[in-house]
């Protein structure tokens, strides 16, 4: 029975299949006895369609914030129970303890 994940894994590992033409890939799919629907999604290079066939919704793949140090500073301040005015906060943001620590550890 055709296993689409095993097939993709094989394509990913195989120097010939990885850069195969559409026709070559069609032959490989036929040889592996892929179903017409899965073959069509793979040959159509439609990742979302293939994912939908496999019951997978689109993923979010962001794992990095753009301003972590401000959040960390705010958290640390909240945890310490310290209230600051806005001018003090902006100074702390400019050179946060975490950044100072990171810079110090580089030297």
């Amino acid at each position: 029975m055709f296993d689409v994940i095993d097939f993709l894994d094989r394509v990913g590992r195989d120097a010939t299949l990885r850069n195969a033409s559409r026709d070559e890939l069609a032959v490989a799919l036929a040889t592996a006895q892929a179903t017409p629907v899965l073959s069509s999604a793979i040959l159509g290079k439609d990742r979302q369609a293939l994912g939908a066939l496999l019951g997978q919704d689109p993923f979010c793949c962001y794992i990095n914030p753009g301003k972590e140090d401000e959040d960390e500073t705010e958290d640390e301040t909240e945890e310490a129970g310290v209230k600051e005015d806005s001018s003090t906060q902006s100074q702390q943001t400019a050179v946060s303890p975490r950044i100072l620590h990171a810079l110090t550890s580089l030297t």
Partner: peptide, 14 residues
């Protein structure tokens, strides 16, 4: 698993 998409996650699950 923090994969780029669900198909990759299915691959990891194997």
């Amino acid at each position: 698993a923090a994969a780029s998409d669900g198909i990759v996650e299915l691959w990891l699950a194997k």
